[in-house]
């Protein structure tokens, strides 16, 4: 049976290290598929103007294609070139919950993420996406620093 690993990218350089680590794991496992995930941070409970609402569908498409082009596709191409079985996904929502949900849907054996390079006040109070993932995920999480 193919072992699935979910790799969460945040568009930063550190993501490359997560991909490298996953590649190494994949080569050890053998029959393995990497699912590269990028989550566009979004909340259904935010407040928007009527004009933003009107444009929302168009913006969403743009956000998805931009994330695919800039982050997910290059990573998937790199993995495929290295002979690793991989595919990419872009979703909207809360980063930690979406990555957990994908891992569950796919029956993944592990989640691999990089340590978020962003800090700041909000993260200190509510925790970063990475720490939320580590605390709440139902599968093992590897944090690459």
């Amino acid at each position: 049976m193919t072992t699935k690993l979910v790799v969460g990218l945040d568009g930063h350089k550190s993501g490359d290290r997560a991909v490298d680590h996953a590649t190494m794991l994949a080569s050890l496992i053998g029959d393995c598929e990497l699912i590269i995930v990028y989550v566009v941070e979004w909340s259904p409970y935010s407040f928007q103007t009527a004009e933003e609402n009107e444009q929302r569908h168009k913006r969403r498409e743009q956000e998805i294609s931009m994330a695919m082009e800039r982050v997910v596709d290059p990573a998937v191409a790199k993995l495929k070139a290295a002979g690793v079985n991989a595919r990419g996904l872009v979703r909207h929502g809360d980063v930690a919950s979406i990555i957990m949900a994908i891992a569950e849907e796919e029956g993944a054996a592990q989640i691999i993420v990089s340590r978020s390079s962003e800090g700041g006040f909000v993260n200190r109070i509510f925790g970063s996406a990475t720490s939320n993932l580590v605390m709440h995920a139902s599968v093992p999480v590897t944090v690459v620093s």
Binding site: V40, W42, P44, F47, Q48, A50, N53, R56, H57, R60
Partner: peptide
């Protein structure tokens, strides 16, 4: 709300606007 529609205008957002 269908999770696949995440990122679109939600009912909450339309109501709030």
């Amino acid at each position: 709300a269908d999770p696949n529609d995440a990122g679109e205008v939600s009912h909450f957002q339309a109501l709030a606007t």
